[in-house]
């Protein structure tokens, strides 16, 4: 039973949030993780997510929005089920990051921060993801894919497509 009546989250996530607010010296510390975990479940940080998190942490909704708009992984609009994030920062750029991004644009038929019509993929050009020595790298949601080439990228995308067909 969640601490919040009529929670918009799944029972598992609601229970996790109930616990999360108790582990810190100040419960507001749970804000950034909660936003990210809520996004993982809901797909984006919706107005309803903002409202419930504000309620859980005794914050003004404005406080939540101030924080949420600061962090680049948080989004307020839905994205594809698989968010393809291609790094083009210096180390990746030197080893073909831009070409990889361009390849994704063509194969997926979408641009930066756009989503495929079937809602399966969205594409994002991102800053350094901490895989510089295994460049060029990309993340699909939270999965890292290293030392990519256009061909390897196609294979990666195919594994996600295949997951859907099952």
């Amino acid at each position: 039973m969640s601490a919040i009546a009529n929670t918009i989250f799944s029972p598992e996530l609601a229970a996790r949030f109930d616990k999360l607010v108790t582990i810190y010296p100040l419960k507001r510390s749970a804000l950034v993780p909660m936003l990210l975990y809520a996004q993982d479940e809901v797909g984006y940080v919706s107005d309803a997510v903002v409202a419930e998190i504000a309620q859980r942490l005794d914050l003004l909704e404005l406080d939540v929005r101030n924080v949420l708009s600061y962090y680049s992984m948080l989004r307020t609009k839905p994205a594809g089920k698989y968010n393809v994030q291609v790094c083009t920062n210096i180390s990746c750029m030197l080893r073909g990051g831009f070409e990889l991004l361009d390849h994704c644009k063509h194969t997926l038929g979408i641009g930066h921060k756009e989503t495929t019509e079937d809602g399966l993929f969205s594409l994002e050009e991102v800053e350094c993801i901490g895989a510089c020595c295994w460049a060029p790298a990309a993340q699909v949601n939270y999965d890292f894919h290293d030392e990519l080439t256009p061909a390897k990228m196609d294979a990666v995308l195919d594994t996600y497509r295949a997951r859907e067909k099952k």
Partner: peptide, 23 residues
């Protein structure tokens, strides 16, 4: 009152009021 906040970051930073446009 805390009706004003700071949103976004960097050169996109902006002062924002407590009721966002979409609401």
């Amino acid at each position: 009152i805390f009706a004003l906040g700071i949103q976004n970051r960097g050169s996109s930073s902006v002062i924002a009021p407590n009721i966002p446009a979409q609401l």
